[in-house]
Design a protein around this nucleic acid. Sequence first.
DNA 1: ACAGAAGTTGAGTGATCACTCAAACTTTTT
DNA 2: AAAAAGTTTGAGTGATCACTCAACTTCTGT
Lengths: 218, 218
Amino acid sequence: MSAQAPLEPETRERILRTAFQLFHEQGFHATGIATIVREAGINPGSLYHFFDSKDQLLLQVLEFAIGYLEPAVMAPVERRTSDPFERIFALLAQYREGMVASGCRMGCPIGNLALEVSDSNPEARDLIHRNFQNWASRVAGWLTEAGQRLPKQLDRAQLARFVLTVMEGGLMQARAANDLRPFDEAVAVLRQHLELLRRRTARRRSRAVRRPAGKRRR
Amino acid sequence: MSAQAPLEPETRERILRTAFQLFHEQGFHATGIATIVREAGINPGSLYHFFDSKDQLLLQVLEFAIGYLEPAVMAPVERRTSDPFERIFALLAQYREGMVASGCRMGCPIGNLALEVSDSNPEARDLIHRNFQNWASRVAGWLTEAGQRLPKQLDRAQLARFVLTVMEGGLMQARAANDLRPFDEAVAVLRQHLELLRRRTARRRSRAVRRPAGKRRR
DNA sequence: ACAGAAGTTGAGTGATCACTCAAACTTTTT
DNA sequence: AAAAAGTTTGAGTGATCACTCAACTTCTGT
């Protein structure tokens, strides 16, 4: 009786997943309700039983995406390695794999919607912003774990947002070029930047060790 | 007679400029032919006299954008300053001004189209790619002019593409946040990266001066 | 002055858009 | 077992989509 797992919490979630994927593949405006309905194997009325409008569906898809980040994106990355820096590049590599799998198409689902709908739909913009914030928070957490390998006064959250910046910009150029090189280059420059920050940290620390006394405070 | 300047090479170009602006403001799919025609003050038939289809119009708009880059974007920046590094940040500042003027909307016209249409329209993708290439070529030219202020073996073209990466990623996040801070932060990190490259260059050069003799080759 | 080309007009085309709803079916509650 | 609530059906709605075309006006060359 009570042991019955929710074997059919289907329809609503199937619509969300289908819409999420189609918005990712084709964009929001290019995806018609008819296509979503066909791909999800339901009828229009069912969709409108769960969602008031296409715009409402978009908002729910963006909320779905927030929940999707942890299990489908971050968890696999954190399982692969525990080193903070390696995690960052494993995360970028995972998006890269998505590009390879789709033949340099699609890119980041949130990034695409960010440019397509955030000007005309304030609620969607908010949710996109929250998606980005969650993403960057996770990366900032890793950078904080990196501790003394980075300059003490370095703003971890800012650098995390920069990682997102580089990823989104790199994905955009890779799609335009139909070639992953621009993305790989961007990641390489990011890696070099982190390396330069770390070297500077090491240099300063070794200097501090040589002169262990004073004049650090203020 | 021959002195008559083309006082009315209007319609075709007015359509292109109107479409360019509307695609920038609303995106390609969200902009109907009816809107373009109304804003340009013409009739549908006139548009289809010059352009075979909406997709063809998009391609011509993207070609128009290639010609637009030099006079409307690069020339003003180069007029403002002649220092290579300052030119880069003047260019970024110009896109920033566009965001301020539009209330954190719109972003980069080419970048928006890159994410919206490059998957489904190969010819458009090519033209978007060429737009990006031209943009990055100009920046790469500046970086080359920077000469010895950067490491000799540093790939100028790659760094120029990275500048584009940072700009596009920064604009995307600024639009999602409805706040220019993410963009400003990204530019600041880019500035810091260039600064680190320059410091490393200076350090190496001064070391080379101290030991002016050999072992540089190979 | 005149013909042909170039450009413009705007009502009209079928297709597709997001969306509706009364009726039927299924599950849950009592 | 009956009532209530939840879910699904799918043909159908008006609005808007990209696009057409025959008639008309304006340029251009001779």
